[in-house]
Design a protein around this nucleic acid. Structure first.
Lengths: 235, 235
DNA sequence: CGCTAAAGTTAGGCTTGTCGAACTTAGCAT
DNA sequence: ATGCTAAGTTCGACAAGCCTAACTTTAGCG
């Protein structure tokens, strides 16, 4: 019920956000894995999950991986919005590069007021995607959706637009930054040279990428793109 | 010694900052007054002062008003820098008005990284004064100094530049904002009409101010400004 | 299908920061 | 000079987060 902002601590917010990210990528993590992500020890995680459970933000039973409640998810989505708007702002207005922006925002996202966030949103022209191509939830929590395929599923000779780059690999971001392959860039997939490697034309340059790197790049094909779309969920 | 940033909590920072502000305006406050300022009860203040004392940031003896150590003052000045840079940024880049900016920055100043602060400083062109005309300390902690007199000491007929406006009165800021009397504006003092009131010409407008309001406005006289400069410290 | 190693939890302790209730001190006013 | 009141402190308690050490549960492997 509470439309009042119900005082969520920074740590609690960080937990909910992480749980949400895991949920959307269909992963699940136990206490010790979460512990690693937060840089704390496992018992701290158990304790926090218990408290989050008491507040109704997480469904938690001992020895089971935790799940967000609707309320918890709502808080998390609000945070995703903050996070992505702030990233966009830092990149566009303060010359941050897309591979250094995450850490900074990690701090800020818990502190920035609704008012400031709104001004930033306005200043940016209410963007719908962040610098990595991730969709920015609206104030109502709705996400703009787009149908994308991983670069690895683009047929040889196919042309597509880079639309989203998984931001969990700084290495990938740096590499793509160097060749200027930001969301919006057009690429053409060339004949594959050797196994595992994948060739691309970006502008007038030609580059090779490892398969497991290429899988982190999502593209919007220009037309009739893909052989076996049915199996996409599988991976 | 420690050039390492020595982990100061947000609350501790807020205390040091407040103590510094009191110090520079020659006031001193006891526990219960501090308590009111922080929205906390007196015992909490005593506890915090004790901890700040243990860390060597404050000289504190029971029943005496606390004093900053050099180390404590250094931390405070760093915060003043953050605070004023952030205020300037919000006003110049995010359309904040100078009377609403303080609250926002109160949160942010403890969270923003050195890196972000540096980018903001660059973006602003390394400003030396904030929107209220308060000097922004450099990275070395030095404050640009300027000789100013309160508007009340400007002689009748005298012309001067508004240079600093005490930002502790939102009311004053709102009033001055309406007439556009920001730092940099030229004003002329007219003959005083009645006791306590003070007449000004700002642009082609003429306004009256109460004396205790006018005392919060600091100006740089254009020439041969003032009758009895000797007593300035007294008030 | 039971055993064991890994994963997870409980117990107990520490720090920061908060509070209310009860006590002490300072300093003014007679 | 003394005594009273307001300001300040101490005490004990609590919540959030974190830790280590010791325990329990799960689940995979033989």
């Amino acid at each position: 019920m509470s439309l009042e902002t119900p005082r969520v601590s920074s740590s609690a917010e960080e937990y909910l956000l992480t749980l949400y990210r895991l949920e959307t990528s269909n992963e699940r993590a136990g206490s010790s894995q979460l512990a690693k992500m937060f840089g704390v020890k496992a018992p701290s995680v158990t304790g926090m999950l218990r408290r989050l459970g008491e507040r109704g933000w997480v469904r938690y039973q001992r020895y089971r991986p935790p799940e967000l409640t609707d309320e918890g998810r709502r808080i998390a989505v609000r945070l995703v919005r903050r996070h992505r708007l702030l990233e966009t702002f830092l990149v566009q207005f303060l010359d941050y590069s897309w591979d250094e922006v995450h850490e900074e925002v990690q701090q800020l996202e818990h502190t920035v007021s609704e008012k400031l966030l709104e001004r930033i949103d306005i200043k940016l022209g209410r963007p719908r995607y962040d610098p990595h191509g991730d969709p920015i939830p609206g104030q109502d929590g709705r996400l703009p959706s787009h149908r994308l395929i991983p670069l690895t599923r683009l047929q040889e000779g196919g042309r597509a637009q880079v639309s989203r780059v998984d931001n969990r690999s700084r290495h990938l971001l740096t590499v793509l930054g160097e060749i200027g392959a930001y969301p919006g860039t057009s690429v053409t997939r060339l004949r594959t040279r050797r196994n595992g490697q994948l060739s691309l034309r970006v502008g007038r340059r030609e580059i090779q990428l490892d398969g497991d790197i290429a899988r982190l790049i999502w593209v919007k094909p220009n037309r009739a793109p893909v052989a076996m779309q049915a199996r996409e969920r599988g991976m």
